[in-house]
Design a protein around this nucleic acid. Structure first.
Length: 189
DNA sequence: AAAGAGATGGTCT
DNA sequence: GACCATCTCTTTT
């Protein structure tokens, strides 16, 4: 139980992505605390054609070039928000996209935010989990390691990352589609 | 069960 | 003006 140190994140995204599995993402928005266990991630690096940072630093992706352990939020398709954890050394331009959570606390609020959708569909996608937690561009750049000062944090509650995560190609991209940088917690029996 | 299309807006060429 | 790190609803097998 406890916080992860910043050095823990100062490694390449493809290394951090599988290790983020089973960590808790906690968000306090509007006085309500919601949390979920991270069950699917994707890695994006600076020399990766599918990454927002591939063509260099811009206003939008500036956070990705910042220090590790911060939250990079962007608007996807003009409708949804997607949450990323910045990794690597300062100036690197790497991040891990959080693709799915298993809801742990704040289910009632999540159901409302997700418009009464079935529990299985509360946070089983990158846009869905952002909506369920109530996180949007307001939290872009938030420090995920501080004592909840930002309202969003990643916590290690002692559940280890899976020894053999399911690995596959990333989803929803048109470049570098063969790179196997998507990681999932294996289906439990 | 699978495939298709519309929504919707910031970012970049 | 094109392109999306998506989601949901509708239409078609």
């Amino acid at each position: 139980m406890g916080a992860l140190g910043r050095p823990w994140f100062e490694r390449d995204a493809p290394v951090v992505a599988p290790e983020l599995l089973n960590k808790l993402l906690v968000a306090q928005v509007g006085g309500v605390v919601c949390s979920g266990r991270i069950v699917e991630t994707e890695a994006y690096t600076e020399d990766d054609p599918a990454s927002h940072t591939f063509t260099g630093r811009t206003d939008r992706n500036a956070v990705m070039f910042g220090s590790a352990g911060h939250l990079y939020v962007y608007l996807s398709y003009g409708i949804h928000h997607c949450l990323n954890v910045v990794t690597g050394r300062q100036g690197d331009g790497q991040a891990v996209l959080l693709r799915a959570l298993r809801p742990v606390t704040g289910l009632e609020t999540m159901r409302i935010r997700r418009n009464g959708r079935p529990d299985a569909e509360l946070a089983n996608g990158p846009g869905k989990l952002a909506q369920a937690l109530g996180v949007s561009l307001t939290q872009n750049g938030a420090d995920l390691l501080g004592p909840t000062a930002s309202g969003v944090a990643i916590i290690d509650d002692g559940v280890a990352a899976p020894l053999e995560p399911a690995i596959g190609p990333r989803i929803g991209i048109s470049k570098a589609t063969a790179t196997p940088w998507r990681f999932r917690v294996p289906l439990t029996t």
